[in-house]
Simulated assay, not measured.
Amino acid sequence: MFDQPAGHAEPRRSRLLGWGSRPRVAAAAACVVLGIGLIGGAVTGSWLGDSDGPGGDSGFSSAAELWHNVPVDDLFPPTVDGRGAGPGGADRTWTRIAVAPDDTCADAFDPLLRKALAPAGCRRLLRATYVDATQSHVTTVGLLFTKADPAGMSALARRFDDDGLSRRPDLMPRPYAAKGTAAAHFGARQRASWTVSVLTDAPVVAFAVSGWADGREVDTSQPAAEAMQSGATTAPGQAGLGNEAQGLTDRIERRLRQTVSPSTETPS
C-alpha cells in the first residue's frame, strides 16, 4: 500500500485548487489548476542532466513539486500533436476530454502494479484521458509523483527493466473513465495496450493505457512496445493502440521536461 501523501487531509485546499470528486470534461478541465503560480526561476534549467552534477539534487527535488506548482494545461495540454506518432509514421492528434481529481494512488492501480511501485512511495497521482482525432481510441495518461530520491528511482527503473515489469499484463495501469465523455465505458476489461516509464532524472513514473472508445472488451492486451512492432497481428497492434499509448506518454513526458527547462527541449 502506498504511503499517504502530504496534504491528504486537506480537502478544502483541494477544492480551492480546482480538484473535486466529479470528473472534469474538456471545457471545465481547461480551467483546472494543479497548484498556485508557475515554476520559479530557480527551478528552470536545473533538472535535466546528471542528478549528481551541480544543482542536480536540487533540481530533482524541485521536480517533485511540479504537481501543485503548474497549471494543468502545462502538463496535460488540451490538444497534443503527435507528428509521426502513428503506425507507419502517420501523424496523430489527441484531444483532452477529462482530467481526474488528483489522487492518493490508493485505488488508481491494480494490486500488483501498486505493489511494484510501492518502494518509491506515492506523493500524488495526476491523470488525464484523451481521444484521438477520429474519436475511435481513448487513452489515459498519468504522472505518478513519487517520494523516492534519485537512488530510489534508479533502483525502481532497474527492477522494471530487469524483471520486464512494464510488459506484464497483470501490471497494466487503470484507465480514467469520465462520465459523459467518449471514455465513459473505458474500464479494466477495455484496456488494450499500455506503457510504463520510470524516470531517473525526476521522481516521476509516466504511464498510459489505451482502448477503443466504443467500450469493446479486449481478449488479449499487448504492451505498446510489442504492439508497435512491424507485422504485429494482434487487435491492439493492427489498430495502432500501442502507438496511442506510447506516443501520448512520450509527449506528456516531454512536456514535463519542457515545463522545467524549456530551452533544452525541441518540440515533437
Rank of each mutant, 00 (worst) to 15 (best):
T233I: 04
G242S: 04
E217T: 15
D250R: 13
Q190F: 00
V70T: 14
F76M: 07
G89I: 01
D110W: 11
L117M: 03
A120C: 03
V218G: 06
P173S: 06
R254A: 08
A42L: 08
V260M: 10
P203I: 03
Q222F: 09
L75V: 05
F76D: 02
A98C: 04
D102F: 09
Q246E: 15
S197C: 03
G20A: 15
P77M: 12
S62W: 13
A224V: 02
G45K: 02
R191I: 02
A188E: 15
L75K: 01
S62H: 15
T259D: 10
R216M: 08
G55S: 09
T129R: 07
T266Q: 14
L165S: 00
E226Y: 07
F186S: 03
C122M: 05
G180E: 11
M228E: 13
W94Q: 00
N69H: 14
L241I: 01
C122S: 00
A208Y: 03
A42N: 13
T93V: 15
Q246F: 12
D110G: 14
N243H: 15
I252A: 07
R257W: 03
A155N: 06
G56F: 09
G18Q: 08
M153K: 00
G240E: 10
P175K: 03
P169S: 07
A85T: 07
T95V: 06
P173T: 03
A155V: 01
R174N: 11
G41S: 09
G180A: 05
G231H: 04
K115Y: 04
A28C: 10
D132G: 07
L113F: 08
K179I: 07
L241R: 10
G55Q: 10
D201A: 01
R168N: 10
K179M: 12
A42W: 11
A29N: 04
W94H: 03
P119I: 05
V141N: 02
E244W: 01
S58W: 11
R257A: 09
D214E: 06
P203A: 05
G231C: 10
G59W: 01
M228R: 14
A182Q: 08
P169T: 13
N69R: 15
D81R: 15
M172L: 10
E253Y: 11
V218Y: 01
R92Q: 15
L117I: 01
P23G: 10
D52M: 05
A184Q: 13
A208E: 04
R83W: 14
M228C: 12
S61L: 14
G237E: 07
D50F: 06
G37P: 02
A188F: 11
P111Y: 02
G152D: 07
R83F: 14
V204Y: 00
V205G: 01
R168W: 04
A188Y: 13
T233S: 11
S46Q: 14
R159M: 02
L125A: 05
W47Q: 12
